[in-house]
Design a protein around this nucleic acid. Structure first.
Lengths: 143, 143
DNA sequence: GGAAGGATCATCCTTTCGGGTGAAGGAGAA
DNA sequence: TTCTCCTTCACCCGAAAGGATGATCCTTCC
């Protein structure tokens, strides 16, 4: 942002210099005032467009980063009714882990994972893990 | 886009009118040429910034829609080696459908879906459908 | 101190998935 | 035309997932 403004200032300074040069040309070659004005208008417009694009590009980069860095929304989690453990299981499911792998990852038994899975299926109102993943992503529960 | 250009043209016309008025002011009140130029520069710059923002906002909207409305990249698909049918199966998998439901959706038998599934698992180098969904999303094969 | 809910584990049973293999018909390329 | 790939379908079998139910232990809340 600051960099853009700095560049804009420099460009403006360059423009003023150019104008001074043009001014001399104006008296020497007696170019029309309209031409003089048109040049200024064109340059300023270009500069403005460039600055506008620069500014909005910055803003867009921020938005992209916001999408990339998933941040859990507590309100959404509370609304879903999922417990912390169920959320963990769901997240590992979405990463493609099997129940056994999830059990190993969380240091619990396979049966425990299956219980958590069954409970979160009920809470998300789904029948399969793939559906659960879909719902979880739709609701912003998982990345 | 066209609307923006139209508005820009109208604004430019208004500016020219304003300039004509200023020109009269210039002769009547004998304002400095620098002031005249400054006004033009400021107006054109503002106009340019506005147009720039307008244009990039349009572009941003398109990009957002591109994220929301998934557009498949043929290069990615070719690189994956997935056939059209396999891609369809993968997409329905990602929506949480069971093999039987996919079979019904595509008007083929369950065995066919299983074959497609097995083939795409090999091509994506995965063992489970959840993994396939993960990979597919990572590579941009599916939304 | 009891009620509620979470986390843990278990058993039994059914359904779904996935691996392996084979095969037939069709479209397109060498 | 032969060969390759895609699509379709079938059968068998083992592994994984899912449904139902019950139980224990722990924390938190009223």
């Amino acid at each position: 942002m600051k960099k853009t403004i700095l560049w804009y200032s420099l460009a403006a300074a360059a423009l003023i210099l150019l104008l001074k040069l043009l001014e001399y040309q104006l008296f020497v070659r007696s170019l029309s005032l309209e031409f003089y004005l048109a040049v200024i208008a064109a340059l300023c417009t270009t500069l403005g467009v460039w600055a506008g694009i620069r500014l909005t590009h910055r803003r867009k980069a921020v938005e992209v980063r916001a999408v990339a860095m998933f941040q859990r929304d507590n309100k959404v989690v509370d609304a879903s009714g999922l417990s912390k453990r169920e959320l963990e299981v769901l997240e590992l499911m979405a990463r493609g882990l099997s129940n056994q792998e999830i059990a190993d990852a969380l240091f619990v038994s396979l049966n425990t994972v299956k219980t958590h899975a069954a409970n979160l299926f009920v809470k998300l109102d789904v029948r399969r893990r793939t559906q659960a993943i879909e719902r979880g992503k739709m609701r912003g529960l998982i990345p």
